[in-house]
Amino acid sequence: MKILVLGAGVVGTAAAYYLAKDGHEVTVIERHEAAARGTSQSNAGLVSPGDATAWASPAALKTFLRALWNHDLGIKVRLRLDPYFYTWSLRFLRECTVKRLRANTDIKLRLALHSRECINQLSEDTGIQYDERKKGILYFFRSQKSLDTGTDNYRYLGEHGLPIEIVGRERLVELEPGLAGVKEKIAGGVYSPIDQTGDSK
């Protein structure tokens, strides 16, 4: 089968690779002068099952409502007469229950763990290098409240297949010496040893 893939970023090139490996004739079209100059150029390059907690949650519901009048938050919500916006908002709000949070997190974690296996296998099979670092990722929290909420979510991930370590200040500095000068401003953190980083370009 002849297949056209639009975009030569991380997703497009990976899709093309797997399609070609499956025996298809694949053409990749990229509007920029080189690969990975769109979304992938600005991406963080994290391979992070530790970040698999679903975003839609009771806490996100509060943030969503606050964003209606506080434009300094990480998300922006602007009311406008757009039926698609209201349809999407209602669908999002229906996902902001503890039950849906857990169900969506289960799916997201399975997908994240599978994706990690895929990228490592792809790297091994092709020899492609992307400045990968397989040293884990450290998630830290500035307040006790955010630490308590965060560790609850991470414990749930840990119960469902993600290796994690909940750490105090001293262990934080041991894992990341660069935090030594600010450790008193950090309540604690979570270390996900199987998380990875790389360059998405």
Results as ranks from 00 to 15, higher is better:
residue 61 L to Q: 11
residue 42 S to V: 11
residue 100 R to D: 06
residue 97 T to V: 12
residue 60 A to Y: 15
residue 120 N to D: 01
residue 122 L to I: 05
residue 58 P to R: 10
residue 75 I to R: 07
residue 54 A to P: 05
residue 135 K to P: 06
residue 136 G to R: 02
residue 133 R to T: 04
residue 68 L to I: 07
residue 109 L to R: 00
residue 118 C to I: 11
residue 127 G to S: 02
residue 94 R to A: 15
residue 105 T to R: 04
residue 106 D to H: 05
residue 62 K to W: 15
residue 97 T to K: 09
residue 119 I to L: 12
residue 121 Q to V: 01
residue 43 N to K: 07
residue 122 L to W: 10
residue 50 G to V: 09
residue 55 W to L: 15
residue 92 F to G: 02
residue 59 A to Q: 14
residue 139 Y to K: 14
residue 128 I to A: 12
residue 61 L to A: 11
residue 107 I to Q: 07
residue 133 R to G: 03
residue 124 E to T: 03
residue 88 W to S: 03
residue 132 E to Q: 13
residue 68 L to S: 08
residue 102 R to K: 14
residue 65 L to P: 05
residue 39 T to A: 15
residue 61 L to Y: 13
residue 57 S to C: 09
residue 72 D to H: 13
residue 78 R to H: 13
residue 66 R to D: 10
residue 86 Y to K: 03
residue 115 S to C: 03
residue 80 R to V: 00
residue 71 H to A: 03
residue 45 G to V: 01
residue 49 P to F: 04
residue 127 G to C: 01
residue 91 R to E: 14
residue 135 K to G: 15
residue 117 E to K: 09
residue 46 L to M: 12
residue 79 L to K: 05
residue 101 L to S: 00
residue 86 Y to Q: 02
residue 98 V to A: 04
residue 51 D to E: 13
residue 95 E to K: 13
residue 76 K to S: 14
residue 107 I to S: 06
residue 135 K to L: 15
residue 107 I to L: 08
residue 123 S to V: 07
residue 124 E to G: 00
residue 110 R to D: 10
residue 64 F to K: 07
residue 54 A to V: 07
residue 103 A to G: 02
residue 101 L to Q: 00
residue 80 R to S: 06
residue 42 S to Y: 08
residue 43 N to D: 06
residue 61 L to S: 08
residue 67 A to L: 04
residue 110 R to L: 09
residue 57 S to Q: 08
residue 98 V to C: 00
residue 103 A to D: 04
residue 116 R to M: 09
residue 70 N to R: 12
residue 100 R to K: 12
residue 38 G to S: 06
residue 138 L to C: 06
residue 95 E to W: 05
residue 135 K to I: 11
residue 76 K to I: 10
residue 105 T to Y: 02
residue 59 A to W: 15
residue 126 T to L: 08
residue 41 Q to E: 04
residue 47 V to N: 07
residue 112 A to D: 06
residue 60 A to F: 15
residue 87 T to S: 07
residue 78 R to D: 13
residue 109 L to N: 00
residue 73 L to G: 07
residue 73 L to K: 05
residue 56 A to T: 05
residue 46 L to I: 08
residue 76 K to A: 13
residue 136 G to L: 04
residue 134 K to H: 10
residue 41 Q to D: 02
residue 75 I to P: 06
residue 121 Q to C: 00
residue 48 S to N: 09
residue 50 G to Q: 11
residue 62 K to L: 15
residue 95 E to V: 00
residue 47 V to H: 02
residue 83 P to M: 12
residue 69 W to H: 08
residue 96 C to E: 05
residue 65 L to T: 07
residue 60 A to D: 14
residue 77 V to T: 12
residue 49 P to H: 04
residue 66 R to V: 00
residue 109 L to C: 00
residue 129 Q to V: 09
residue 38 G to E: 11
residue 100 R to Q: 11
residue 99 K to I: 06
residue 44 A to C: 04
residue 84 Y to C: 03
residue 107 I to G: 00
residue 73 L to D: 06
residue 120 N to V: 01
residue 73 L to P: 08
residue 78 R to V: 14
residue 123 S to T: 10
residue 72 D to E: 14
residue 73 L to Y: 05
residue 63 T to H: 06
residue 104 N to K: 09
residue 72 D to W: 10
